[in-house]
Design a protein around this nucleic acid. Structure first.
Lengths: 243, 243
DNA sequence: CGGATCCTTCGGCGCCGGCCGAAGCATGGC
DNA sequence: GCCATGCTTCGGCCGGCGCCGAAGGATCCG
């Protein structure tokens, strides 16, 4: 335990600027984006974008990786994504302006990435299915995989050993900011998401970096492996969030 | 699912101001504090404090309850506390300045409240003990109480039925920002914390609203009921956080 | 009812920081 | 080598907001 104290205001100040918040939101897709593209996302000039990104970098919120004459930025880690989601959870909603925005929001509600794992109705449904089937059990820093869970993951081709060896937490619930119920995060959640994308069960929607579309094949597979059928017609009013 | 989008920047901007951040930090004790006291905490005049509190109120981060000529402010809910803790988790640490600050920080690291439940080494140890003893199991929006867990809580005099009936989540892990491992949050966590305070196992430390001291009686009881012995001499380097 | 306490609103000051254009520095293509 | 592209740094403008003192309203006390 180092005897220091956190600088709450500093980090919040970094996020609390519309252009930077838009950039961070875009980076919640888990992908690394070029500085210029992030500037466009934030609606500012390249010069301003560069300043913002430098600040975010100094604040430890993003990392940069140089590639040719492009510089790609990504979130500095899962805990940054977690903080952003937690903030979104308490943010007042403001009305959408266009039909297009409404369509995008509806699509995001069904399936999207939360940093590098699955969120939205799909993410929550998968989480619940894994818990209900006793594939996940309480233990360690969140969840541990049961014998049944290990077999299920092996059947899907998820590299559980690699996930267990990662320096980050293995499996952890992450409160979904649209569903207000947990979905699966951590190394296992990321590995599962990657696998489902690689297998063509899910594809990224070009319109929004975070959006996912479930392919027909994925729909069948989700029903077979997890008993999950989406979109779920049940009412969206679920349990209240909690800290 | 309402088709709206969250205003990430707005909320972060509210938190990202030193005086307001200090106020919110003080409110993380879970108590309601008067406007004047919060002004002193933030190091600003009553006038400025009032402005800040009005903004926080409009932003939905705090609630106010009038009592005589005092107006007491408290966090608007558990999800606000959760967002603050998540932010603290990614905040860079800055060196403490005085010996006094160092002592306070060390005390906070051992036992403190996180909004209305237990955090610090004590909170994490209790969480781990409950999971290890199969008092808590994965289920619902986080944890459910097993039969053994229900008996344990009953023995302590914790009103589990009331906690289960609360509108908030029943039991949920909350990532501790000093330990970087989960402690127990949710209605059950709050009920447990309240019970331990009421029974005199823990007392609040006047120097810092969030700080807790374990009484000699509490120390014995914690060992008896949970097998928990603090301060724990094991190294503080634990698993990395995750979103 | 008059004074004390607590809080809020108002007016005005000052500064931080977000913005851009222009210039500087890399990299890549030809 | 020369130019185009992508990004960053620099200088300067300007608006927002954080700050306070003073004034006003509410509550409690004697």
């Amino acid at each position: 335990m180092d005897s220091k104290q956190a600088d709450l205001a500093g980090v919040a100040r970094l996020i609390g600027e519309p252009a930077r918040a838009a950039m961070l939101d875009a980076l919640l897709s888990g992908r690394a984006l070029a500085a210029g593209e992030l500037g466009r996302v934030g609606g500012v000039s390249p010069a301003t974008a560069s300043e913002h990104l430098a600040r975010l970098r100094d604040g430890g919120l993003v990392e940069v990786v140089a590639a040719g004459r492009h510089r790609y930025y990504r979130l500095a880690g899962p805990e940054v994504a977690h903080a952003l989601e937690a903030l979104a959870l308490v943010s007042p909603r403001r009305p959408v302006r266009s039909l297009r925005q409404s369509r995008v929001a509806a699509a995001l509600a069904i399936a999207r990435t939360c940093y590098d794992h699955l969120a939205g109705q799909l993410g929550v449904a998968l989480h619940d299915a894994l818990v209900d089937r006793d594939a996940l059990a309480a233990g360690g820093d969140g969840y541990r995989l049961t014998e049944a869970g290990a077999q299920l993951m092996a059947g899907l081709g998820v590299d559980v050993a690699a996930a267990a060896a990662a320096r980050r937490a293995f499996a952890r619930p992450c409160l979904d900011f649209t569903e207000r119920r947990p979905h699966l995060a951590g190394a296992l959640g990321a590995a599962l998401c990657a696998r489902l994308l690689a297998d063509g069960w899910l594809v990224r929607v070009a319109a929004d970096q975070r959006g996912l579309r479930i392919t027909p094949r994925g729909r069948r597979a989700l029903a077979t492996y997890f008993g999950v059928r989406l979109p779920d017609p049940r009412a969206s009013t679920a349990g209240a969030p909690d800290g």
